[in-house]
Simulated scan of single mutants.
Amino acid sequence: MHHTLCKVDSIVALNPVVSLVTLTPEQTFSHQAGQYLKVVMDEDDQRPFSIANAPRKDEKIQLHIGAEPGNSYAGEVLDRMRQDGEITVNGGLGSAYARTTVSMPTVLLAGGTGFSYAQAILQKILEVTQHTEGHKDPLFLYWGTRSTADMYAYEELVALAKQHQHFSFIPVVEHPGHQWSGKTGWVHKAVLEDFVSLEPYRVYVAGRFEMAGIAREEFHQQGLILKNLYGDAFEFI
């Protein structure tokens, strides 16, 4: 496996729980939008995180690390980065990356910090389609979080949807406050309510394994062709 040492540029709080980590690889690091890396704590302890950006010219890598109190798995990674100012990673890994050679209407489905995976694919598709004249295939992002406070990129996504006519952002909140007028409940159910048939769609899923498993089954029943479904979870479930 190819180990790459990275300089830790910055760790910025996106909300009280999620941190945006920006890394600069010291050697060549290649990845595709939607792949993940493993943070090497030691040889027998490598911890996976989605890369939250499509490949960039400056080669920087961003991660969204959610470390709620009691989550030492992610907390220790942040502590190590803060302490050493550098970290060794292994990547890019995974085969659920963005498919862009053949354009299709696309649904991105993310639960919680699974949004980092969806964001990388979103960036890639928007980058490819901005060079497309005329018709652009519709692109939908459904992001489900527990509360509105957990939706740390809300403003940014609303702005992106205004800027790109073929892109729609649909936020779904499990426990909304009384001001919330958007969709509520389980994020994959919101997709099922909105599409009569998923047959023409390519779907990318990131979130808890349970959610991914149920979504696969119910989306398939609603017409989704399984070869058009992507997500790292599906290698394990």
Rank of each mutant, 00 (worst) to 15 (best):
Q222R: 15
E127I: 01
R56G: 11
E156V: 03
E199K: 14
P138W: 05
G182I: 07
V18I: 15
L141W: 06
E218V: 13
P16L: 09
L224A: 08
I87H: 04
A206T: 05
Q179I: 06
E174A: 14
G92Y: 00
L93G: 05
A212Y: 02
T106Q: 05
Q27P: 00
G34E: 00
I125M: 10
S116K: 01
G231F: 08
S181I: 09
S116Y: 00
M41R: 10
V128T: 13
Y230V: 04
K7F: 07
S30P: 03
A215R: 06
F140K: 05
V102R: 08
E59N: 13
V196D: 13
V21C: 11
L160F: 02
A52Y: 02
L226A: 03
I214R: 02
K162A: 15
G114K: 08
M104S: 07
L20Q: 10
Q165G: 09
Q27F: 10
V196A: 15
V12G: 00
V172M: 01
P176W: 01
A161V: 08
Y201N: 04
V172N: 00
L157F: 04
L108T: 08
S181T: 13
W143S: 07
G213T: 07
N228W: 03
E127P: 01
H2F: 10
V203H: 04
P105G: 07
G177L: 09
L122Y: 01
Q32A: 12
G66V: 04
L5W: 10
G177P: 01
H178M: 04
L157G: 02
D42V: 03
E199L: 06
A233E: 07
L20H: 12
A206S: 15
N228G: 02
G182E: 09
G112H: 02
S19T: 09
L126V: 06
I225A: 08
V158W: 00
L229R: 02
N90Q: 15
M81D: 01
I237V: 13
V102W: 04
H220G: 13
R56D: 09
D232V: 08
R208A: 11
A96D: 09
G177R: 07
T100Y: 06
E210Y: 00
E210W: 03
A96T: 04
F115L: 15
E133L: 12
Q165S: 14
Q27N: 15
I51M: 10
P176E: 08
Q35C: 12
S197M: 07
F219N: 00
V12T: 15
V8Y: 05
N53V: 05
K162S: 12
G134A: 10
A149Q: 14
L160S: 08
K189A: 09
H220K: 14
V77N: 03
G111A: 07
R146P: 09
K183F: 05
E235A: 14
V173G: 02
V77W: 00
H135A: 12
S103R: 09
R216V: 01
E156R: 06
L224Y: 02
F236A: 11
T28M: 09
H175M: 08
Y204G: 03
G223A: 12
D42S: 11
R56E: 12
M41V: 14
I11A: 11
T113Q: 07
N53E: 06
V12H: 03
S103P: 08
I125Y: 00
H166E: 11
V40M: 03
A212L: 04
Q83D: 06
S95R: 11
H175W: 07
H175T: 13
G144M: 07
D79K: 12
S95Q: 10
H64K: 02
S116F: 01
R47W: 06
W186Y: 13
